[in-house]
Every structure is written in C-alpha cells, then in structure tokens.
Amino acid sequence: MESNAQDLMNIVGTAESKQDSDRILDLLFSYMPKIAAERSLQNLLVLMADLGRSLVRADRCSLWLIDEDKNELWTKVAHGVNELRIPITAGFVGHSVKTGEALLVEDAYKDERFDHRSDEKTHYHTTSVMTVPLMNGAGKVMGVYQAINKQGETPVFSKQDLERLALTAVYSAKTIESATLTAELEAAKVELEATQKELIHILGDVSESRSRETGDHIQRVAEISYKLAVYYGLPEQEAQRIRLAAPMHDLGKVGIPDAILNKPGRFTDEEYAVMKSHAQIGEQILLKSKRELLVFAASLAGAHHERWDGKGYPRGLKGEEIPLAGRICAVADVLDALSSPRCYKPAWPEEKVKEEFIKQSGMQFQPELVDVLVKNWDDIFGCFRKIRAEMEAVAV
C-alpha cells in the first residue's frame, strides 16, 4: 500500500505548474477510491484506462493483457469498442511485450511496427501513440498500457506524457496483479466450496440409499431446515450453511447393519442402542475433515437427535446446550419422518403431525422453533401436500 502511494506521488511530481498539479491531484482523488473499492478485474481495467487517458489527455487509452494460453493480447477497455484480440507480437503493444521497452510514436502510419488491423476493425484513424509495458512483481511483462491520439493544442505526446503513463503503469501493474491474485483465490474458494457441496450430497445419498423407505428424505430435510432457519430470523448466509450441512445429518447410518436399519418392526433395546449410535458415527466421520462446512455438518449430525428437555441422545444435551443447527434439523427430520410413509408405518395425517409438534413444544423441540413451524405451516408443509396429491393421482 505504501509503495502504491509513492507511485501516485511520483505522478503528481511530474506536474509543470500548480494548475497542472491541481488537475492531477483532482484526477487521483477522483479515481483512487473507486479503484481501491473495485473487486472486478474487468471494471478495474476500465478505471485504469480512464485514469491514464485523463492524465495524458489521450483520445483513447487501453490496457492490453497477455493471454498466454492463446498467445494473444486482448483488451476490453479501448474506448468505444468491444473486446479486441491481436497476436502477442503484433503492432506497438506487441513490440513492448517483446522488448520490454516503452514507445513514443508521432505518426503511427509512418512506423513499420504499426498494426493496421485494430483501425480496420474499429474504423478509427491512429496518429500519435504511446505504449508502456506493465511489469509484474517478478519483472515479467504482463501487459501493455497504450494511449492513442493526443488531444489539445499539441497533436503528439510528449516525453512528460510518457513519463506520466509509465508511472501510472507501475501503479496499475501492482493493482492489477493484486486483483488477479484475489480473483484467482476467490475462484479457488468457489471451486472448493462447490466440491464440498457436491461431496456432502454424494455422501448424504450414500447414507440414505441404505434405507429403502427414505427416498428424497435428505433433500426435504435440507429445504425444511433452510426455511425454518430463515423464518427463525437467521442471516441468509447462516441459513444456507444449514441447508448445505443438513443432508449429512444421517451419514452415520453407513455404520448401522442392514438388519437393524431396515427392520419393519419395533427395535429391541439392544437394536435401538445400535441405531442411536449413528449420530456419533456421523459426527466422528465428519470431524476427520478440516473443512469448515464439514466440521459444521459434524456438529449438526451429532446433535439432531438431542431433545430440548435433555432426554435425547447421544449426549443428553438440554435447551440451548444443543447447537442451533441441530435443533432446527431435529424439527425438519421429525416432520419428514411423520409426514412420509416408512417401512414400519404409513404417513401421518397432516393435522395429527401438527398436533404432535404442538404437544412436543418445550419437550422434544425448542418452543420458538415450533412456533415458527406452526406460523409458517402452509409453506413448510406444502411439499408433503404436493407429494400426497401426486400419489393419489397415480392411485386413481
């Protein structure tokens, strides 16, 4: 940051007069907050091009960047045109890429290095030109700053203009390199999060595939948990996190024998003890990960069978000792279990399901969550009404 500030002060130092200095300062004060706040690389390039154009009083100014995969130079910021692409060695910008040198050209059409293709595409006539290479932190050319057609009384750019563009290029290169790195890190983060989401749903599907009767259970629990979280007043980001973690609530079922998992009748005490162990099994599996989302899912998996009155399992947690995500998932899980047919029972009638939640308020479930469920019953229970209507239509 200090280095960038010094770069800007160097630009001011090129002023010939107080009036010129004031103009440059006004430009910098105008553009710097916008540049500092900008997160989009493409928008940042536009701002940098506009700054350069104003500083040297050019008709057009653009930042060409190297596309190493295609061995091309490209720009989206040449004023009044769409994206342009040229071979990496073409024209004045190509010369600056190849040599690392800045150019100051009075008449482009008298210089054999000029590439006419840009003018032909844009129906523009280039006269005076400046190019300055942008160097990254490793001293390698990453692009080229180009200003075209000096405006004002003097038709050509001066050495002072070139110095100003060169100083702006130093600042721009550092800013663009930082923005590019930030964009790459953000892209990597998005990819990692997408991978985690996919992994969660895959593992959730694996665990549920062992239970013949569950069908789309994990998806419904995820959506119901999300709605409960939103209606409860949690921020959208937290509600989404619960939605992503909820499919993992029964992951521990992968460690339960089929004979118990799919038993149609009542469990013996020994079988029930084995069945209850799935909460801790799932938690332990997920805790092996260091990923934040999976660790969060571990907490949810380990807590979704706890009860508000402390009579749940595996730890007998009570009230707010139970993680909120676990309390929310407990409501969603039981709502789906009661409202859906299972191998050991038919689906309960809608009113009976609602009555059971009201009855269990303050015992099995947090009262405020039951209130949220009942208040928003039509929206939350709507998915089961749809399923039941579809089943009735098929039966007919």
Rank of each mutant, 00 (worst) to 15 (best):
Y313A: 13
Q19D: 15
T214D: 04
R291G: 06
R39Y: 10
A5L: 14
L65E: 00
L234V: 02
V12F: 09
N149H: 00
G282S: 00
N149V: 02
M363D: 13
Q42S: 15
R291A: 15
T195M: 13
Y31F: 15
K253P: 01
S299H: 09
L44W: 01
L181Y: 12
A36C: 11
Q219L: 15
G282W: 02
P133G: 01
A395W: 00
A58D: 01
H305R: 06
G233M: 07
W64L: 02
C61R: 09
Q19R: 12
V254G: 07
G302I: 10
E120H: 03
L294C: 04
Y109Q: 12
P247T: 02
E191P: 07
M48G: 10
V334P: 07
G316C: 02
D205A: 13
K150P: 03
L41H: 11
C329T: 06
H95M: 07
K253N: 02
R117A: 12
K98R: 15
Q360L: 11
E350N: 08
N376W: 08
S299C: 10
R342S: 09
K150G: 03
A102S: 08
F157I: 05
E283L: 13
K375P: 06
T131L: 00
A102D: 04
A166K: 15
M32N: 12
